[in-house]
């Protein structure tokens, strides 16, 4: 049996006195595409941050490439991370190529200047996301979708084995989100990456992922999309009665039928 890329055993996380994740056990195999679904405040981003070692669990064990996230050392170079864009200052005077190059800051070594191989990796990553023509543009002047592609290029510039994305389509319209997932699906296949995607977009994700984890503080369901995305599973995750619109076997859209007067 192959060692899972990510392995969480009975993980619980709290912010101060509030428990945000409880007893999470899940694993991600090499080459898998895991979608983490859940409503707002369900702990999706916290789960990702725990996997990355940015948030410490108060209980349970986290292993990434077989090691604790804080003890990964050079193995960190195998992880590409695409955060939500909200924390980035758009007035920051930085060019697209430099944003991507900074993704390799640790790989270059402390106090070291970029070498040719670093610049080549930047060019390749920009080409992968079709942003080569924007290399000299200021990052903050790009559209939301273009900025997202640059942040993905920054993660890909590391030539990672594991790519983790947090709500990558939050700043995109429906059409752009569709093409983004199409691109992500192809990149997953072509580069043989292990992907972990956090999203609340049930419909689009279910068409591309190989496994789904439904989260609402606890892990409500985990497995193949067709086994997880049942009406019962989604009701447990969203915690309300809902109507599901289907494309084929899986729900495409979730609409709450709860009467707002009664809540």
């Amino acid at each position: 049996m192959t060692t899972p890329v990510i392995d969480l055993q009975n993980v619980s996380v709290a912010y101060q006195d509030k428990i945000v994740l409880q007893d999470i056990t899940l694993s991600v195999s090499p080459g898998a595409f895991l979608g983490i679904l859940g409503p707002n405040g369900s702990g999706k981003t916290t789960l990702l941050r725990t996997m990355l070692g940015l948030t410490d669990p108060f209980d349970g064990t986290v292993r990434v490439f077989g090691k604790e996230p804080k003890k990964l050392k050079r193995l960190r170079e195998k992880i590409g991370y695409v955060p939500q864009q909200s924390h980035i200052d758009l007035t920051f005077p930085i060019q697209v190529k430099d944003v991507v190059l900074l993704g390799r800051a640790y790989k270059m070594g402390l106090g070291k200047r970029p070498h040719n191989q670093d610049r080549e990796a930047v060019e390749e990553a920009l080409e992968l996301v079709h942003m080569t023509d924007f290399a000299d543009e200021q990052f903050g002047r790009l559209s939301g979708g273009q900025r997202q592609r640059v942040l993905i290029a920054r993660a890909l510039a590391l030539q990672p084995d594991l790519l983790m994305l947090d709500e990558p389509t939050a700043a995109l319209d429906v059409g752009a989100a569709e093409s983004f997932y199409e691109w992500l699906h192809n990149t997953h296949k072509n580069l043989g990456l292990t992907l972990v995607l956090v999203t609340h977009d049930v419909g689009v994700v279910s068409r591309y992922v190989t496994a789904i984890a439904c989260l609402n503080k606890r892990l409500v369901a985990h497995g193949l999309p067709e086994n997880v995305l049942t009406e019962e599973g989604l009701q447990a995750m969203y915690g309300c009665d809902a109507v599901f619109f289907h494309h084929g076997k899986v729900p495409h859209l979730v609409v709450s039928t709860r009467d707002p007067e009664k809540t």
């Binding site: 940015l54 050392k73 955060p83 980035i88 920051f92 402390l110």
Partner: peptide
Amino acid sequence: FFFYKEFLLLTFDAEMAAVTGLP
């Protein structure tokens, strides 16, 4: 001069600096 790129990443995106493994 020595830690220019480290300080640049820390200033631009501190979370990413932590994820990439910078101290």
